[in-house]
Computed example of a mutant assay.
Amino acid sequence: MIELTSRIDGETFKLFYLEEKLKPLGYTIGGGWDYDHGSFDYKIDDEVGYQFLRVPFVAVDGALDTKGTTVRIQKPLLLSHKYQIGLDDHVHVGNLKASIDQFAEPQDPDAQFPEKYVDLGCSLVRELEEVLLK
């Protein structure tokens, strides 16, 4: 994980506004969101797992599933997730979760981020600053 310095860190926006601005640029709402925090993710590559820019945020007023919620952007991160090949090694007979969730556990959820994508991540953050801080 690499934290990136950005002028959007600490800025507040309506969540709906962020969705309108970021989704056309290729960002998706990260799968690990909760009612008080979440992230926008931009997939950079899927080389041996996947690499992405994550823009985390926290709710300032209300829950994320509430209309009109304001969120505060936190420090953008470059992340790399490396998934194991094959079946989930934590599955055992009688494991109810395994019968529902068939995805393998990450081999390394915080793998080394490839150096060749750091400049791209920095340019994506500059693009975010231009789009959001007009």
Results as ranks from 00 to 15, higher is better:
76 P>R: 02
85 I>D: 05
53 L>V: 11
43 K>I: 04
25 L>N: 03
52 F>K: 08
99 S>G: 12
26 G>V: 11
49 G>Y: 06
64 L>C: 07
81 H>I: 03
60 V>P: 05
78 L>R: 00
62 G>M: 07
48 V>W: 02
99 S>F: 06
84 Q>D: 05
48 V>K: 03
46 D>Q: 13
49 G>W: 09
66 T>N: 06
89 D>K: 15
46 D>A: 12
81 H>C: 02
66 T>H: 10
25 L>M: 12
95 N>Q: 04
23 K>Q: 15
76 P>D: 02
75 K>W: 01
40 F>C: 06
98 A>D: 09
68 G>R: 08
33 W>P: 07
60 V>F: 14
29 I>A: 07
71 V>L: 04
80 S>T: 10
40 F>W: 10
41 D>V: 03
46 D>L: 07
28 T>Q: 12
24 P>C: 08
55 V>I: 15
35 Y>L: 13
43 K>W: 01
42 Y>G: 00
45 D>E: 10
87 L>T: 12
81 H>N: 03
68 G>W: 09
77 L>P: 00
65 D>M: 09
30 G>A: 14
86 G>P: 15
91 V>K: 08
67 K>C: 10
79 L>E: 07
46 D>N: 14
57 F>R: 04
46 D>E: 14
79 L>H: 03
51 Q>T: 09
98 A>E: 05
34 D>Y: 04
72 R>P: 05
63 A>S: 12
63 A>V: 14
56 P>M: 04
83 Y>S: 01
53 L>G: 02
59 A>R: 11
26 G>C: 12
81 H>L: 04
40 F>N: 04
43 K>N: 07
47 E>Q: 15
64 L>K: 10
78 L>H: 03
37 H>F: 15
74 Q>D: 10
102 Q>E: 06
61 D>R: 03
62 G>W: 04
98 A>S: 15
101 D>C: 13
98 A>P: 08
25 L>D: 05
30 G>K: 06
57 F>P: 08
93 V>I: 11
74 Q>C: 10
90 H>V: 02
47 E>R: 14
50 Y>T: 01
81 H>M: 02
75 K>G: 01
69 T>K: 09
76 P>F: 00
33 W>C: 11
86 G>R: 07
40 F>M: 08
83 Y>H: 00
42 Y>W: 10
74 Q>K: 13
47 E>W: 15
54 R>F: 01
57 F>M: 11
73 I>Q: 02
97 K>T: 10
83 Y>R: 00
49 G>N: 11
76 P>W: 00
73 I>Y: 03
32 G>K: 14
24 P>V: 12
56 P>H: 06
78 L>D: 01
86 G>K: 06
85 I>S: 08
40 F>K: 00
50 Y>N: 07
69 T>Q: 10
80 S>N: 14
75 K>S: 07
